[in-house]
Structures are given as C-alpha cells and as structure tokens.
Simulated scan of single mutants.
Amino acid sequence: MAERPTTSWRRGVAEEAEELAAGTLDPDSACMAALFPEELLVATDAVLDTFEAELTALAEADDAQVFAVVEGVVLALNVVNDAHDGCAFETDEREALCGYIDQALAEHGVDVVTLTARQGLGRYQLTDKWREW
C-alpha cells in the first residue's frame, strides 16, 4: 500500500526530536514539530482513513464514483487545511498528498491516466477542481 504522507511526516518529527535530544541539531534549526503538529497529523490521518475505506469499492466503479471519492478526500483535506489557517499543506505536502491519492487509486484498480484523460484532464489534475491547499 502507498505510504501515507503522515507516516513520513511523523518519522521526520521523531528524527528531529532525537537529534535535538542528542544535541546534534541546533534548536534554532528545528522546524518539523511546528510544521507537523500532532493535531494536524491526527486530522489528516482521519481523512485518509475514510479515503482508504472507500477505495475497496473502486475497482469496478465508474468515473463518477471514483471522482466522488476523490472529491470527498480533497474537500475533507480542505477542512483540515482551513483549521490550520490555510497553512497546513505547503508545496511538498501538497505533492505528497496528491501523489498518495493517485498511487492509492492505482493500487485499487483505477487507471488514473485513462480516468483523467476521459475527463479532458492531465494525470496530475485529478484533485485540482476541489483542492484549496
């Protein structure tokens, strides 16, 4: 299964905390805990839990059903982003989330390239219609 971006983000927070505790990182250089507070990670994971639960039904789904699931996860991530003053997901995080959505769909039998092409979209425009982050 595709690795959730939150897994990587948590790993970065933990590694930074270890470096701080060991004295190998200048506290002024530490940023991971501020970028990824626990409440952001928990909220993002809750959205991804719902998304993953909906993936199992998509192998035989039509385009409208797939796009409904994508819309749902994107709108829910918009809410998470809004709760963090519109700053929850910066460029790297946006790319990681979009990549995760794409990969998770593909792993559940959705041909994302074909799906988006049928809608007149490029592959990487899958989330654009609803995404505010």
Score class of each variant (00 low, 15 high):
Glu54Arg: 10
Glu16Lys: 08
Asp26Glu: 08
Pro27Glu: 03
Glu19Ser: 14
Leu55Cys: 02
Ala53Ser: 08
Asp63Phe: 02
Glu54Leu: 04
Ser29Leu: 15
Leu25Tyr: 02
Leu20Phe: 04
Thr44Arg: 11
Met32Ser: 11
Ala53Gly: 07
Ala22Asn: 04
Phe36Thr: 00
Gly23Thr: 01
Asp28Met: 11
Val47Trp: 13
Glu15His: 02
Leu55Glu: 00
Glu19His: 13
Thr50Met: 02
Ala17Asp: 08
Glu52Cys: 11
Ala14His: 08
Leu20Pro: 04
Thr50Glu: 09
Ala30Ser: 15
Ala46Gly: 01
Ala46Arg: 04
Ala59Trp: 13
Ala59Thr: 13
Ala33Glu: 15
Leu55Ala: 00
Ala34Val: 14
Glu54Tyr: 00
Glu18Gly: 07
Asp45His: 10
Val42Asn: 00
Ala43Leu: 05
Ala34Ser: 13
Ala53Trp: 07
Ala46Cys: 01
Asp62Ala: 01
Phe51Asn: 08
Leu20Glu: 05
Leu25Phe: 00
Glu16Pro: 04
Glu18Pro: 06
Ala57Gln: 14
Glu19Thr: 05
Glu52Arg: 09
Leu35Phe: 14
Ser29Tyr: 14
Gly23Phe: 13
Leu25Met: 07
Leu55Asn: 02
Glu16Gly: 07
Ala22Asp: 12
Cys31His: 01
Val47Tyr: 12
Ala57Ile: 03
Ala33Asp: 09
Thr24Glu: 12
Thr50Ala: 11
Ala21Asn: 04
